[in-house]
Every structure is written in structure tokens, then in C-alpha cells.
Design a binder for these strands. Structure first.
Lengths: 174, 174
DNA sequence: ACGAGATTGTTACGGCCGTAACAATCACCT
DNA sequence: AGGTGATTGTTACGGCCGTAACAATCTCGT
């Protein structure tokens, strides 16, 4: 039975060391602020890399592609501009993602009747099946990631994240 | 005085809608698991994009470049392979990052006496000054991001993230 | 009706990241 | 001493993302 501790994890060991070093420094150094930001970004990075390599790449797709298709699955045909603001991405990134998905036959572009500038991205039947299959796998993998927390703890974590998201600083504040 | 609510935030509005839709679906659909993973990845994405555009790009650098230099600042001259495992990145990504930083005169490569394969990346004086300046700005910006939480709440959030990180699933588990 | 300003989607360019393949070097066992 | 296997750093290639610039189209006030 293999037991893993913080010492076996170079990233956690580094974070602990950095926190100690920052504790010796004068403000604005902030050991606890550093730890919060570091662990948040690092965990997200690991989850993204894991979902990408374990779930989506073996199927020949990507996580960003899946996330876009998942939105189309829930929302139906949607304009790139709306997908961009939902995802907080640039319109150019959506264009590129739709290009790749369209090339693979998972998504198609449709004209919008009322606006000749606009285009709506929509799932093809192949894309819809692809989303449903990957969705089940991704859900199970996400559950594994957070299995170490109790339901109450998971709920607390979600609530704290949402509070930060709802209060996020504007582009020029500060 | 501008008041912002969830309805003004297309991303939060989408997350709430998705959660409702998933609640109507049979397992393995998991509305709360989805919300946790979605908000975690989304918040991280926003913080990364914000630090990049507000702090580092105006100075002519990038967030990944800063994070690498910050590690060198704390650790001293370090081999790319060690930077890669600390950061959970590939060695190729470190090579590319060091190339860019070296081109800009912020980092230099040094031979390692005991191992002729190895190279150590080290901050130049220009790089060291750059890290210190950006560090102060980044710290303040991170504090703004989490100002909506009390110190206790921030501590709880950090602890929950660390628990997940320490228990993370292996490459092939599940 | 018309023109200024905003919006939509696209393209070009550069940076970041992973995988895969490679040569050079090291470690270790026989 | 020799040879197998592992490690180090690099390069090539493709995907993702942002910014900036662009043409086409829509909106709205006059």
C-alpha cells in the first residue's frame, strides 16, 4: 500500500517552502495570499491537464472543444459572440475552436435569419453523441478529483468560489 | 454606485442554468459536481487572464514567465527538469519559456559542474529586479481578487484546495 | 434617408503547452 | 571495462488563446 505525503509532491513541497520564505519578507509579501492563489491556479491546471489527457485526447478531441460542445448541447444553436462572453474568451478563440470542431464534423455553422452578420454554431448528430459519451466520463473523473472532501466540504468550497467570482474586480479597479 | 448581480454575469448565469438542466438528468449527471469543477476552472481562468493582462503584459512579459522567474528567485539557479516537476509542466515547455526569458535578458543558462547533460537556469540582475517589481503588483492584485472573503474564509478555501491537491488521483486510477 | 458608431465574425501573428522523437550523457549491473 | 537502461535538454509539430486589424452589417439619432 503506497502512502503519499506532501514530501512526495514536488509542487506541494515547493509551495510550503515559498510560504516560509515569504513569511520572512516585509509587506507587500503575503504568504497566505500567495498560498491561496498558488493552490487555486495549480489545482485548476492539474485538473485541466488531467481531463485533457485522460478523457478527451484519447477520443481525439480536446477539453476546450468539449466545453464548447457541452454549451451547445445545453443551449442549442448559439452565436459565437454569446459563447465568447459566457466563456470569458475572445471571439477569435471561439472562431478557431469552431473551425476545428467543424473540420471534425462535430459542429456546423448556420446562418441567422434576422442578422446577416451573425452565424450560429450547432451540434451535428455526431457531435451530440460525442458530447454525451464524454460527459459521462468527465463527470466520473471530476468526482474522483473531489472525493477526498465530504459533501458539506464540497458545498463550502463551491460557495466560496462563487462568492469570489461574483465579487471579481473590474478591468481597471485597483 | 454600480451594483452587479449574477444576472449581469453571463458566465454565472450560464452556470446556474446548466445546474438546473443537469438536475433534471439521471446519473451520472451531477449538478453539484459540475458546479464545483466549473467554478474552480472558471475562476482560475479569470485570475490567470487578469494577472496576465493587468500586471505582466503591460510590462512586456507573461504570467508563465513570471512564475518561472519567481521560482528562480526563491530557489536560486535550478535545472529545467526540476522546474518542470515543480510546475507539473513538460520539460519542453520549460525549455521554451527559458528561451523567451533568455532572449529578453531576464534569465541565463549556466553549465552544471557535475553533469554535462544538465543546465541551470538563473536570474540575471535585470531578471531579479523584474521579479521584485512584478511580485509587488501581483500580490496586491491577488489580494483584490479575494478581498470579498474574510481571513477565516480564505483560510478555509486554501485548506480545502490543499486537501484536494494532496489526494489527487493518479494517472491511471479510475 | 443618411451617416456616425457599434457589433459580428474572421484572419494574421506571437506566445504558451503537450506529445513524440532525438542525441548526449549518466548510472548501474555484470 | 562494457553495455543496457534511464535521464537531460532540445527540436518539430499541432492545438489553444489573446491582441489587433479588417470588412460586412446593424443601430440609432438627426
Amino acid at each position: 500500500m503506497r502512502k503519499t505525503s506532501a514530501v512526495d509532491r514536488p509542487d506541494l513541497k515547493y509551495a510550503a517552502y515559498a510560504r516560509e520564505r515569504l513569511a520572512e519578507m516585509p509587506p507587500p509579501a503575503d504568504p497566505e495570499g500567495f498560498a491561496l492563489a498558488y493552490h487555486l491556479l495549480h489545482l485548476s491546471y492539474l485538473v485541466v491537464a488531467d481531463l485533457e489527457s485522460q478523457i478527451h485526447r484519447p477520443r481525439g478531441w480536446t477539453l476546450p472543444g468539449f466545453r464548447l460542445m457541452f454549451k451547445l448541447w445545453l443551449l442549442g444553436p448559439t452565436q459565437p459572440a454569446r459563447l465568447a462572453e459566457i466563456s470569458a474568451m475572445s471571439r477569435a478563440a471561439v472562431t478557431n475552436a469552431v473551425n476545428t470542431l467543424e473540420r471534425d464534423g462535430l459542429v456546423e455553422r448556420r446562418p441567422v435569419p434576422d442578422d446577416r452578420r451573425a452565424v450560429a454554431a450547432a451540434l451535428t448528430p455526431k457531435g451530440e453523441q460525442a458530447v454525451q459519451e464524454a460527459f459521462a466520463d468527465q463527470t466520473r473523473r471530476e468526482q474522483q478529483w473531489f472525493a477526498a472532501l465530504s459533501p458539506d466540504e464540497r458545498s463550502t468550497l463551491t460557495e466560496l468560489l462563487v462568492r469570489v467570482l461574483a465579487s471579481r474586480p473590474g478591468d481597471t479597479e485597483g
